[in-house]
């Protein structure tokens, strides 16, 4: 993959994905999802009481564009666990139904819970961040 050396949006997305063990890119926010697919995916994570970071892709079309270029996945939502794309709404629901998601999230073993993962770091500071990460970890 040859990308231009400087792509701030791509870099911001990449660090958000690597810094947050569970991160959901969605339309709207967990409190106010703007799309049924995003809403259903949030509902699954909330049912599991799984802490997650959320990024609203709607404020800037470039977020979605770069995210899809990065992940190779055309649609929103997109759930990443430990840096890996898990999938969109269909896959998340299917994996929730058969227990694979719970397993992936380590709910049986040492959970990703309670990790001190930079809560607030993404939105701290004076300059406007390219991505607003609603950190629910």
């Amino acid at each position: 993959m040859s990308e231009p050396a400087s792509n701030p949006m791509r870099e911001a997305l990449q660090s958000a994905i690597s810094e947050n063990p569970v991160i959901l890119f969605m339309k709207g926010t967990p409190d106010a999802p703007a799309c049924g697919f995003s809403a259903r995916t949030v509902a699954v994570l909330e049912t599991l009481e799984q802490p997650f970071a959320a990024v609203n892709v709607l404020p800037d079309p470039a977020i979605r564009q770069e995210l899809s270029a990065l992940s190779g996945w055309p649609t929103i939502p997109q759930l990443f666990v430990r840096g890996e794309l898990v999938g969109g709404c269909d896959i998340v629901l299917e994996m929730y139904d058969n227990g694979e998601l719970q397993q992936l999230l380590g709910m049986d073993a040492d959970a990703a819970k309670g990790q001190a993962v930079g809560a607030g770091t993404a939105t701290d500071g004076g300059e406007p961040a390219p991505l607003v990460i609603e950190n629910l970890l």
Binding site: W73, P74, T75, I76, D90, I91
Partner: peptide, 17 residues
Amino acid sequence: RIAQHKLVYDVFGTELG
């Protein structure tokens, strides 16, 4: 699963979304 879905998504490319 990801690859399965991508196989179908790839049929439609940028028409998706």
